[in-house]
Design a protein around this nucleic acid. Structure first.
Lengths: 221, 221
DNA sequence: CCGCAACCGGAGGGGGTGCTCCACTTACCG
DNA sequence: CGGTAAGTGGAGCACCCCCTCCGGTTGCGG
């Protein structure tokens, strides 16, 4: 996979600064979340604000670049799971790994859950992962391990729940996340599936569609 | 229970405005979360900013006042549950009710999870509820319905997870929350309790103690 | 009905953040 | 080694939000 054409010809010092910025942003996002001030990132990287904005015109571009690796890792997790002959282990592993990544990096959680208007390959990769997950779910159900009334939206639900833990728990997040995932995996198993009351109108796609904001009663009031 | 002495002698119009402010704040907090601008609340209430600040000097005082009813309802739920002869139903009802309240009101979630430095009775009531919950847990375990390795911190975990859903899911929050709670309640049952890997170092108290911020590597950078 | 004290709303200072413009510096190529 | 274009950092503007001060208004007791 060749590097993106936009960054091939950078002067040596510029490239160096670019790496410093990415590193600083990575740390800042992980500990303080996605809305850390740009100036703080620049300061941490030891560059001026202008340099940061020249390299990454929008915060979004910085975020996508910073979390590209981790998203790749996510995709790889899904692919690995698709190659696993044991459907339930595949399902379990994906859930555990992704949630662990979320819990370890507060910014990653937000980046994962945020829709990026541009970032075409981002979206495409996400759609691909979603298809992979659907297949894993299908197999696990077919194997009789995953309860039949499990819905793909339940994964989104789990991700949101896990994000809540990552957002507030801080240092305790990894342990709490592990615990939550363990509980839920047990609840997802087919062999002890009590009836499940409510259906979940919640998939990643329509979460982005018209999700988060207020009901917008007036204009701004 | 008599009204608080601080608000007994208000002029008629002032009292009227006070109610308008509380109503506006309630709506704003519910839809936009706790950090909605004070000016927006004032505008929505049809009063000036000064009036809002005169009546509620800090945002915190406004928040506590707005959610006093709901916190009372929470406490009542715990008390009701303590009176229930069926321990498991008591446990289940408390969890379901509180989570439903959280899902219905985004601000309530935040208010519930936020520590208030003042608000003495707030803290006291919270501590009391926590004791009640401990008793409910104890009974449910003794009845053999709740798994023995359930920990009180698991409730906090559930609350945080539910908060994550309330924060991002918006209109789908109630349904998603119900689904999550249903899953977790099944996982909490003693009769299908697979071994649970990680212990949870996470209770409400130490969540407040030194919880949310970054690791604070330097001073502000 | 009158006077005063309680009340009101908006203007404005202070702080923080997003983003840009511009004079200076420096890597790199010939 | 020198010219040049790429690169740099910080000052500065615009915006938003918190909170307070102050001149005008009004409920209400006498």
């Amino acid at each position: 996979m060749p590097a993106r054409p936009s960054r091939i010809s950078l002067r040596a010092d510029a490239l160096h600064n670019r790496h410093r910025i990415l590193q600083a942003a990575r740390e800042a996002f992980a500990t303080r979340g996605l809305d850390v001030p740009m100036a703080a990132i620049a300061r941490r990287a030891g560059v001026g604000v202008a340099t940061l904005y020249r390299r990454f015109p929008t915060r979004e571009s910085l975020v996508t670049e910073v979390f590209a690796d981790q998203l790749t890792a996510c995709a790889a997790t899904v692919d690995d799971a698709l190659a696993d002959p044991d459907p339930w282990r595949a399902f379990r592993t994906v859930v555990e790994q992704v949630c662990a990544m979320q819990a370890a990096d507060r910014g990653f959680t937000a980046a994962f859950l945020t829709a990026f208007p541009d970032a075409a390959d981002h979206e495409e990769r996400r759609a691909r992962a979603e298809r992979g997950l659907a297949e894993i779910i299908r197999r696990a159900k077919a194997a009789g391990k995953l309860r039949a009334d499990f819905h793909q939206a339940d994964l989104t639900m789990l991700l949101l729940a896990n994000a809540g833990i990552a957002a507030e728990a801080s240092q305790a997040a990894p342990a709490a996340s592990r615990r939550l995932v363990a509980y839920l995996l047990q609840a997802f198993r087919a062999d002890h599936a009590d009836p499940l009351p409510p259906p979940p109108p919640l998939t990643l796609s329509d979460l982005y569609g018209r999700g988060r904001g207020a009901g917008r009663p007036g204009v701004t009031q």
